[in-house]
């Protein structure tokens, strides 16, 4: 390293810094930076072309206590208990396989995770229990499940 330095001709002292020079450098850099920033935003569209995150499941009267309905396309099971309705996502929290809803338990076919009837992990690699989803009532009385919104495990919704 010292050898390299030795070889170099001593740089001349920079005596005067032109204002124009600095200003130019910084505005040019910031304009290109801004353009870069803008194009980094480009790959994420404002809306994704997938099916809606919310879907309607009918009215509360369609779910008498004890019913269980699986919405295959959306991978959600809706159960009606005495203390209200709940929607449980059927997507395994390990790597996103779709779990099989069986009596009082959920089994994941990919890596063997087993969940109990409330979606807690009983056995296997999944790090988290199955997601419970929010059910809300629309002004016209219809119920709507929001796949994007999870609620704490065990939350049940009571509708009239």
């Amino acid at each position: 390293m010292s050898e390299e330095e030795h070889c170099k001709i001593k740089p001349e002292e920079v005596t005067r810094r032109d204002f124009l020079k600095t200003a130019t450098m910084w505005t040019a850099a910031s304009s290109l930076g801004l353009a870069l920033l803008g194009s980094l935003k480009f790959p994420k569209p404002a809306l994704f072309p997938d099916i809606p995150k919310t879907f309607k499941i009918g009215k509360a009267s369609d779910f008498p206590v004890g019913t269980e309905k699986v919405f295959k396309e959306k991978s959600v099971v809706v159960q009606s208990h005495r203390d209200g309705l709940c929607a449980i996502s059927l997507i395994c929290t390990h790597l996103g396989c779709i779990v099989k809803a069986e009596r009082k338990k959920f089994d994941c076919p990919c890596h063997g995770t087993k969940f109990d009837d409330e979606g807690r992990v009983v056995y296997g690699p999944a790090p988290k229990p199955l997601e419970w989803l929010k059910i809300s009532q629309l002004p016209d009385g219809k119920l709507e499940v929001n796949i994007a919104k999870s609620v704490p495990l065990g939350t049940k919704f009571l509708f009239s």
């Binding site: 803008g38 194009s39 935003k41 480009f42 994420k44 569209p45 404002a46 072309p49």
Partner: peptide
Amino acid sequence: KDIQFIVPGGRFV
């Protein structure tokens, strides 16, 4: 059309 309407900066690009 999607580039025009929903891509951030799509119309400009």
